[in-house]
Structure formats: C-alpha cells, structure tokens
Simulated scan of single mutants.
Amino acid sequence: MHFLVHPYIALTLAILFEVTGTAFLQRSEQFTEVLPTGLMVVFYGASFYFLTLALKAIPLGIAYAMWAGLGIVLVALLGFVVFGQKLDLAGVAGVGLIVTGVVVLNTLSDTAAH
C-alpha cells in the first residue's frame, strides 16, 4: 500500500474516478467527441489504479462489490441531477437494494477487512 493512501480512501477515490469517467462516457457521444473521450480514459485509468491500491488490503469480493455497487448508485444520482434521467419505482427499489447490500457487507459480514 502506498504509504499515503489508506485502503478505504483509495477505494473511495476509485469509485469517484469511475463515476466521473462514466459521466465523460455519456458526454463522449460514442467516442466522437475527443476531449470527453480522453478524459473518460484518464478517469477510468485513475479509477483502476486506486482500485489496485485498495486491493492490497481489502478482499477482492468486498472491494469490487463496493466499487461497482456504490458506483451504480452514484451514476444513477448523477444521471438524475446532471443529465435529467429518471428512475421509476422499481429502479429506486433496486438502487436501495444495492445500498443495503453494501451496508450488509461492511457491517455484518466477517469477510470485510477493517
């Protein structure tokens, strides 16, 4: 582990960079817009870098569940706030289940390394 980065800080950065990369993916217009496409690549690269730092101390299953699950929740929120996309009741329930799953993994599971 890099001496300046705590595993959960690294994972948080990985999630935030992934969400930012996904926002630029939306803006890339199927890779036809050069700047958003380039920024998407940079942010996804940073996301994977920080995910690898997190994996030095957090089990893969836990880290990936948090990275993917919280990424989905934040992208859904970003889609609503920035892009005006809406979720129906089933979508909101699904996002709620994802959040519940991440909370259960981190509070009740003995698998999570703290």
Rank of each mutant, 00 (worst) to 15 (best):
S109W: 00
T20E: 10
L60H: 08
T111W: 15
G45D: 06
P59E: 07
L97Q: 05
H2N: 15
V42M: 15
G94K: 03
A93S: 10
G79C: 02
G101P: 13
L74A: 11
V75Y: 04
K86F: 09
V42S: 12
L35V: 09
A63F: 00
L55Q: 02
T52S: 13
N106W: 00
K56L: 06
M1V: 12
L13S: 03
M40D: 04
G21E: 02
T22P: 01
F3I: 14
F17S: 11
V103K: 10
A76I: 03
R27M: 12
A57Q: 14
I62W: 00
G45N: 02
T107Q: 07
G21P: 03
L4D: 05
A23T: 04
G101D: 12
I98S: 13
D88K: 05
K86Y: 11
T100M: 13
Y64N: 13
S28P: 03
F43L: 11
L60A: 12
L60M: 14
V19P: 02
L35T: 06
N106P: 12
L108H: 09
A63L: 01
F50N: 01
G96R: 07
V82R: 14
F24D: 03
F50K: 02
T37F: 09
G91D: 04
V82G: 10
G79Y: 05
R27V: 08
L60P: 07
